[in-house]
């Protein structure tokens, strides 16, 4: 009987804990968002975050996109050729990349690179009193550290995904032409014929949400880190894990919203 009660109590504690964290996250996010419309604005901090998230993530996102496109073409051609449906390779590659793989893989790569760096930087500022120092110097840390990063995440990731989409399709094209023997004109024609605006737009909307989530997780875990180097390490891990899981969860929710009929 006691064991059963303990079990139920543990579930209850878990649910309450999850509610608590969700509430805190929502308040933190809304607080950060509210500073987008309340001056003063820190343009330099925004540009710094934009370059950090967008520009410096380009190589890793580009490589991921090219190889994903190449693998997609290779895999789909071996699968589709069994049904004599080789001509669908082009459309399969372009739809997979724009709708799903572009935003999700770019999101996961940026979460690992930027989410971790953000949590580590803000977490170190927290444990070395730099965040308190900001407050004593007439600067709201939510406005100075968090709001610019949230906005930069929201804007940078769609820009990265535009490039990832192009490079992903290019990767598929290279393999289709050089290895699978497709005619380049027909391949490109198939690519463009099956692509609709909504495919690209939905992917970019996903990217914007993912970018916001990555920044939110990096800032939240860094901002609330405690207890020296170990606390900052834990914050970094939590930021990356939480951002990655949320990207995959929100990917499903957004896909349901965009495409479920």
């Amino acid at each position: 009987m006691n064991a059963a009660l303990d079990f139920v109590a543990a579930i209850g504690r878990g649910v309450l804990g999850a509610c608590l964290v969700t509430g805190r996250l929502a308040l933190f996010g809304l607080n950060g968002l509210s500073h987008w419309v309340r001056p003063p604005f820190y343009g330099r901090m925004f540009l710094r975050a934009l370059i950090e998230i967008g520009y410096f993530s380009l190589p890793v996102v580009a490589l991921t996109a090219v190889f994903t496109g190449m693998v997609l073409a290779l895999q789909s051609s071996t699968g589709l050729s069994r049904f004599a449906a080789d001509s669908a390779v082009a459309s399969l590659v372009v739809l997979s990349v724009t709708r799903e793989l572009g935003p999700v893989l770019a999101g996961l790569m940026v979460a690992g690179r930027v989410g971790a760096a953000m949590a580590a930087e803000i977490g170190t500022m927290r444990v070395t009193d730099q965040i308190d120092a900001l407050t004593t110097l007439s600067t709201n840390p939510m406005k100075y550290l968090v709001a610019p990063r949230l906005l930069a995440g929201l804007i940078a990731l769609p820009l990265l995904v535009v490039i990832a989409d192009i490079l992903g399709v290019l990767g598929g094209f290279i393999i289709a032409i050089l290895k699978l023997g497709f005619n380049s004109g027909i391949y490109l024609n198939n690519t463009l014929n099956f692509l609709e605006t909504q495919d690209v737009v939905s992917g970019l909307a996903k990217a914007a949400v993912f970018g916001f989530l990555i920044s939110l997780m990096g800032c939240y875990h860094g901002y609330n880190s405690r207890g020296g180097a170990q606390g900052v390490g834990a914050a970094t891990t939590s930021a990356v894990v939480a951002a990655s899981v949320l990207i995959l969860a929100f990917d499903y929710v957004l896909t349901e919203l965009f495409f479920a009929r």
Partner: peptide, 20 residues
């Protein structure tokens, strides 16, 4: 309260300089 805080200067234990 912010106006009051603006009149106070604080030297933190480890300096808390912004390393960026």
């Amino acid at each position: 309260r912010e106006a009051v805080r603006n009149r106070i200067g604080m030297l933190f234990q480890n300096g808390a300089l912004f390393d960026s």
